[in-house]
Amino acid sequence: MKKALIITLLASFATNAQIREKGEMEISPFIGISSANYYGDVSIMNESVSNPYFGANIDLYLNNRWSLKTGLEYQSMGSQGESYTFEYFEENLNFISVPIHANYHFSKNRKWYLNFGPTINFLTDAKSNTFNIKEGVTPVQMGLGLGIGYKIFINERFSIGIDHQEYIGFSNNLKSKYNNDLFIGNIFGSFSVKAVFKISSTQTNND
Rank of each mutant, 00 (worst) to 15 (best):
N132P: 06
S43I: 02
K134D: 12
K69I: 02
Y84E: 05
Y178F: 12
T70M: 05
G40I: 02
M45W: 09
S107G: 09
N63I: 09
G169N: 11
H101M: 13
T70L: 03
Y113E: 05
K198M: 12
G185R: 09
N64D: 14
Y104H: 08
I7K: 03
H164V: 15
D181P: 09
N16T: 08
K69H: 02
Y39S: 03
S35C: 03
Y88S: 14
N16C: 10
E90A: 04
Q18H: 07
T204A: 11
E156P: 04
S48C: 00
K151S: 10
S67F: 06
V140F: 06
E21P: 09
S128Q: 15
I168K: 06
H164G: 13
F122E: 02
Y38P: 08
L182T: 00
I152L: 15
E166C: 09
F153L: 06
E135P: 09
G71M: 04
N46G: 15
S12D: 15
N94H: 11
M1I: 15
A195L: 12
L123D: 03
S200G: 09
V137M: 09
Y38W: 13
K177D: 15
N57G: 06
I154H: 10
A14L: 14
M1S: 15
Y61I: 01
L60T: 14
G143A: 06
S200M: 04
P139E: 10
Y178D: 02
D163M: 13
I184R: 01
Y113K: 10
Y84K: 05
G149T: 01
N132H: 04
S159M: 07
K22G: 07
V98M: 10
S48M: 03
V49M: 05
I44F: 14
L9T: 10
S176R: 12
I58Y: 07
L10S: 09
L114K: 04
R65A: 10
D125P: 00
T130N: 11
F30W: 11
Y178T: 02
V193A: 14
A102D: 02
F158W: 13
V196R: 05
K198G: 14
A36L: 03
Q203C: 05
T124F: 12
Q165D: 10
N94D: 14
H101V: 04
